[in-house]
């Protein structure tokens, strides 16, 4: 990749971050904010991983191993415990 591409990625990252901060400081609320922020996060991860870490030009299986390895395991872990977190919250309410 060229230097230009790196700094283009940099600009894109800054733009997404700025958008997330603007959204987070009150202009969007509730579930829409959550979706927006998570989307922004995924876009940033894709930009850093794909362009800065050159994952884009690697073998497809390696991309799958890295992306699915981290994402699926994290999601499985969080999904498994989040239900109980809601339950603990409910039980703590009078």
């Amino acid at each position: 990749m060229t230097y230009k591409a790196y700094w283009g990625t940099w600009l894109a990252l800054l733009a997404v971050t700025l958008g997330m901060i603007v959204a987070g400081s009150g202009s969007v609320t509730g579930g829409a904010l959550l979706v927006l922020l998570l989307l922004g996060m995924l876009v940033k991860i894709g930009l850093i991983g794909g362009n800065f870490m050159h994952l884009r030009s690697e073998n497809r299986v390696l991309i799958l191993i890295v992306a699915l390895g981290i994402l699926l395991v994290s999601i499985a872990l969080f999904a498994g415990i989040a239900v109980d977190a809601a339950r603990v919250y409910k039980l703590s309410q009078p």
Binding site: I65, V66, L77, F78
Partner: peptide, 27 residues
């Protein structure tokens, strides 16, 4: 290095999942 990044990333995933749990569970 990539595999190490996956495992190290999962340590953070563990921390963040615990944080998420506590945040949802705390009134």
């Amino acid at each position: 290095m990539w595999l190490f990044i996956v495992t190290d990333g999962l340590v953070f995933a563990g921390f963040l999942a615990i944080y998420g749990f506590l945040r949802i569970a705390s009134p």
